[in-house]
């Protein structure tokens, strides 16, 4: 899997940086689109996985689901940071400012705070079963503001941010086929990257849990 993923990502990087035409009227800076959109997608996907694993933990009380949920949240947080940073680069190129308090920019930043709070809460509980149950419940609660902030809030207020280009977005079909194909290749690659990182992080969580149990 690692080798296929590595080759896939190299091809995506070459297509995005060297083959694809400059896009969105931003020249070469616009190429960050191929990395910003997948980072945002993976962060939300990771939070959905964290919520699902949290629900499975609450139903089964198997510690492995807690490890998977915590691992997904950690990777989600990392990709949210990357989406925020790459969004700031895009904002600077498009609007001349790194940060504009645009509803979508702000929404992603609040999602960052929501999952920062998840770890503050998780780290403040010592007993492993309590920590797992409460983290699982918080992961399920946190998905509500995440959905609201990412999908609902930007539609309620005016935004500088381009409309979503993913399925369901208003501008579906307005994007050139080659650019769309590279974007989907990048989305697939980043999703694979998430799965790979998630498996490693889950193993780390299991080891940490074993150490916790020994203490």
């Amino acid at each position: 899997m690692r080798i296929v993923l590595g080759i896939w990502m190299v091809v995506v990087v070459i297509l995005a940086l060297l083959v694809s035409p400059p896009l969105l009227g931003l020249g070469d800076a616009g190429r960050i689109f191929y990395f910003h959109v997948p980072c945002a997608w993976v962060s939300f996907f990771a939070y959905a996985v964290a919520a699902y694993c949290g629900a499975r933990y609450l139903l089964s009380r198997r510690a492995d689901w807690d490890c998977k949920s915590a691992a997904a949240s950690q990777i989600g947080l990392l990709f949210t940071v990357l989406a925020t940073a790459s969004g700031a680069v895009w904002a600077e190129a498009a609007w001349g400012q790194w940060w504009n308090w645009d509803p979508r920019e702000t929404a992603v930043f609040i999602v960052l705070l929501v999952y920062g709070a998840y770890f503050a809460l998780r780290m403040s509980i010592e007993q492993p079963e309590q920590r797992a149950a409460i983290s699982a419940a918080y992961a399920l609660i946190a998905i509500v503001p995440a959905i609201f902030l990412i999908y609902v809030a930007p539609r309620l207020v005016e935004s500088l941010h381009p409309s979503p280009v993913l399925p369901g977005g208003e501008e579906k079909g307005s994007i050139e086929p080659f650019i769309r194909n590279v974007l989907f290749a990048s989305l697939a690659g980043f999703t694979g990257l998430f799965v790979w990182m998630w498996r490693i992080q889950t193993r780390i969580e299991r080891i940490a849990l074993g150490k916790d149990a020994q203490l």
């Binding site: 503050a120 403040s124 503001p145």
Partner: peptide, 27 residues
């Protein structure tokens, strides 16, 4: 209500409550 129930099991409850509640209540 549920956040308070969660935080009651944590250390440094009052600060964790504010940290956990603010982002959920921002929307």
């Amino acid at each position: 209500t549920i956040l308070a129930a969660m935080v009651a099991k944590a250390r440094a409850r009052s600060s964790v409550f504010a940290v956990a509640a603010l982002p959920v209540l921002l929307p």
